[in-house]
């Protein structure tokens, strides 16, 4: 997937919230690789309307026990930037499976591609 939109993942929602949401998700770090979930390419999409914000994301490994911790971190970062009237939902999906080409330019640089 080399046709990246202006946001690092598909975003469907108000423009005034976009920058804050992207920045929030970039603050969610996987400490094992010192990269954000955005740089790893785990975020498949964000959809926002006036009632809810839904993040669709995956993990690189189904055997990863820290999924709940990362979801929790993402939730708290988003709660800081989004009005409290908007419900937050984070869905973990396994299809399509994550592949390394989803990593951002920055992520690839860090990993020495």
């Amino acid at each position: 997937m080399s046709d990246l939109p202006a946001a690092p993942f598909p975003y469907d929602g108000p423009e005034d919230l976009r920058a804050g949401i992207v920045a929030a998700l970039k603050r969610v770090i996987d400490p094992e690789v010192a990269m954000s979930i955005v740089d790893v390419g785990l975020v498949y999409g964000v959809a926002v309307d006036d009632r809810e914000l839904r993040v669709t994301m995956t993990m690189t490994s189904a055997a990863c026990p820290v999924t709940d911790v990362i979801v929790d971190d993402a939730w708290h970062e988003l709660a800081r930037v989004v009005p409290s009237s908007i419900e937050l939902d984070i869905d973990i999906v396994w299809e399509p499976p994550w592949t390394p080409d989803r990593m951002s330019e920055r992520g690839r640089r860090i990993m020495g591609w």
Partner: peptide
């Protein structure tokens, strides 16, 4: 080893 293998996928040479 399995976990380390999984991590190497990030290098693009998995």
């Amino acid at each position: 080893a399995a976990e380390r293998l999984e991590m190497t996928r990030l290098t693009g040479r998995g």
